[in-house]
Design a protein around this nucleic acid. Sequence first.
DNA 1: GTCTATAGATTGATAGAC
DNA 2: GTCTATCAATCTATAGAC
Lengths: 206, 206
Amino acid sequence: MKKKDTTQRILDAAEALFAEKGVSNTSLREITSRAGVNLASVNYHFGSKLGLVEAVLKRRLDPLNKERLKRLQAIKREADSTGKAPSVRAIMQAIFEPILIMVDTQAFIRIIARSMTDPDETVKNVFLREIGPVFRLMFSLLMRALPHVPKDVLFWRVQFALGAMGHSLWAIGRVKMVPEGVDASISRDRLLELWLDFCTEGLENP
Amino acid sequence: MKKKDTTQRILDAAEALFAEKGVSNTSLREITSRAGVNLASVNYHFGSKLGLVEAVLKRRLDPLNKERLKRLQAIKREADSTGKAPSVRAIMQAIFEPILIMVDTQAFIRIIARSMTDPDETVKNVFLREIGPVFRLMFSLLMRALPHVPKDVLFWRVQFALGAMGHSLWAIGRVKMVPEGVDASISRDRLLELWLDFCTEGLENP
DNA sequence: GTCTATAGATTGATAGAC
DNA sequence: GTCTATCAATCTATAGAC
């Protein structure tokens, strides 16, 4: 079995550590020692720590948001051709489900969740840039699906739905506060289902 | 006008900076220079940076969660004495409204929101310790309000609601991505109302 | 491409005068 | 309690041998 590419090893190690402790609580030394590579190789391959942060996020966010966009565009085409309003549930599913489908590691989910909340400037910028087109298309479809909901109200409901998604993705597998008698373990598919129920209800509320 | 206490000045400056950039992106030098006090005074008054972090969070979370607990206990007493199930909306209101009522600065809201997501270990620990009793009482009341919802499902719905709250509190006043024609500015009371509508609907879903 | 060695900056913390 | 001065550790980044 061939040893993995240095670039990949660094990305994997950085992803795990960024997801776990946040970008600025992770040093390049931790990353390279976990990856089993030399400290200087980070700067050789990525130019700087910022370059590495960008690369780590883009590796996941890029295909994720491409897949989301593809699904949303399919929903739009369907709505355009039939003249019927798109389904709220289908729209939201197009946002969440690609995360579960494209998973290959536990760290993947966490880096997505982390990218929504990490205080680091670079993280915020990359996240917003990457999700921009997805967000705009999602919002315009939701407006068509829910013409009776005022735009400004819809905007905040979408924020609620995204906040719920991010928080639950973050909590999955690492819930700290579980009431007695509750089984907090959950499959990803089940989480998707519960989230869709929850936020479809909240979005459609008249 | 008397100059404020050094301790207070440090707490205020630290709160603003922690809320803005996160704990580990903020140095003691930034804090003391913003507060107009000497660098060494942080260690004199708080022992260490960790001590300061704890103090900053506790100053807000302590009275906040006391107020929440008071309200939840009142709801419990009412339910106990009348034998009627408590109202989901009232329970959720007891969680969110105290944040708005106890506000004295913009930074206050952000430090609450930040405390839910900052990757720093100390932040997470203080937040969980402080909210523990509130969470348990809230959950037991929700179980009484929604006896037909399985515990495990309810648990995740509560996570959704809290995630929605945290994210929207964070977004308020600093929304980065606003679709054309949408007015994302919103009063705190209005946000509370929208959030209650959203998550009451989602929690009660059969 | 990979390594050692180190520069250069910044950090949290503290000793000691006032 | 407040200040200056500084230590010791840690960080990112880079120069240069291999």
